Amino acid sequence: MEDFWVEELRPKPLSGDGEHWIVRLEKRDMTTDQLAHQLAKRVGISRGDVGYAGLKDRQGVTLQDFSLHLPGKELPKGWQEGLPAGVVVRDIGRDRRKIKPGMLSGNAFTIRLRGCGVALAEEERAQSVRLIADEINQFGVPNFFGPQRFGRDGDNVAEGLKQLRRGRKGRRGDRHKRGILLSAVRSDLFNRLLAARMQEGLFKQLLPGDVAQLAGRTGAFLVEDFESEHTRFEAKEIHPSGPLFGSHMLLPEGRAGEMERSLMEQESETIELLEKNGMKGARRALRLFPSDFGQQWEGSDLILTFTLPRGCYATSVVREFLK
């Protein structure tokens, strides 16, 4: 079994007809964007006519859908034969819509942690995992953006800042790449706010004045009736949120507001540049609850299975088992 396996989950069944061929591919040793370019070449369309829901890096095995815009046409004969090594076609269908970023319900993971139980007896291993799983079920895990958000060498933030400072001049060229770089800048700011909240021992709490989100939703609201909202917080119906800086973003009050304003003062130039470059403010939940959680031992290897909502990172869950 591979050490890392992720499968994108479709938000709904394919329509069975339409202008877009949907190919479900298993890939290894290749990023999503690299494979999209290869598909465009193989079927004779522009890169812009290839769609996908989420960016996956080259590590491990990924199962995900790509849409190919071929109105009134069949897939070219022999198109599969030239696909790169490590790419396998698992399913082909049709749909009326192009797959766009975010068009998935989540990701299902299977991850092998090799040798993490080598120093423990069998009973100790089982007890350790149970305790961690119980902690996750009660409090969730920190919803950090994962390292792949920041590039292979971690330089996306620095490159994103260069793009921001160039302003309109920096908008020439690859818009897709520019979007990734700018997103890395504000993802880094979000991670810093979340880390600061954890350092103060406030991660497991809802605070008066927090900006909260309904579970699974993007809309945000100010926590004013603390008692009633705290009940919903404990029931996992709402989550405190952190900033994705940009224009027209709702800000918290109280202690949560003080922490965000402190970060805004430290990074005032960057946040101003994000707004000037057209980034719209948004909020992201600070905590994350995996679903369909399972675990088993194979010798000293721990195998984890779980499902996460779109935009969330498996590293947030794995980190809890490697502390």
Rank of each mutant, 00 (worst) to 15 (best):
F4E: 02
V6Q: 02
E8A: 08
R10H: 06
P11V: 00
L14D: 12
S15L: 11
D17T: 07
G18E: 00
H20Q: 01
R24G: 11
L25T: 09
L25Q: 05
M30D: 03
M30V: 14
T32A: 04
Q34F: 00
Q34D: 13
L35M: 10
A36D: 12
V43A: 07
V43H: 07
R47K: 15
G48N: 15
A53D: 05
K56R: 11
G60V: 04
V61H: 04
Q64P: 05
S67T: 01
S67P: 03
L68M: 04
H69W: 10
H69D: 06
L70M: 05
E74C: 06
L75Y: 03
G82P: 12
V87G: 02
I92E: 03
R94S: 01
I99E: 00
N107H: 01
A108E: 08
T110I: 01
L113R: 12
R114I: 13
R114C: 15
G115P: 13
G115R: 12
G115M: 12
C116W: 14
C116K: 13
C116N: 10
V118T: 13
Q127V: 10
S128T: 13
V129S: 02
E135S: 14
I136E: 03
I136W: 03
Q138I: 09
F139Y: 14
P142V: 04
P142E: 03
N143W: 04
G146I: 00
R149E: 05
G151T: 10
R152F: 12
D155I: 06
D155P: 08
D155R: 13
D155W: 05
A158L: 11
R166E: 15
R171W: 10
K177S: 13
I180F: 14
L181E: 11
R186L: 12
S187Y: 07
F190K: 07
L193N: 14
A195T: 12
A195Q: 15
R197G: 09
M198Q: 14
Q199E: 15
G201K: 13
L202Q: 10
F203E: 15
L206R: 07
D210L: 10
V211G: 09
A212M: 13
A215M: 11
F226L: 04
E229R: 10
H230N: 06
E237A: 15
I238P: 07
P240W: 05
P240V: 01
S241N: 01
G242N: 00
H248Q: 14
H248D: 14
H248C: 02
M249R: 11
L250C: 07
G257A: 06
E258G: 06
M259A: 12
L263M: 12
M264N: 00
E272G: 10
L273D: 01
L273V: 01
L274W: 00
L274H: 02
E275V: 13
K276Y: 08
K280N: 09
R283C: 06
R284L: 07
L286A: 11
F289Q: 11
P290V: 05
S291Y: 07
F293I: 06
S300A: 14
D301T: 02
I303F: 08
T315H: 02
V318W: 09
F321P: 04
F321W: 11
L322V: 15
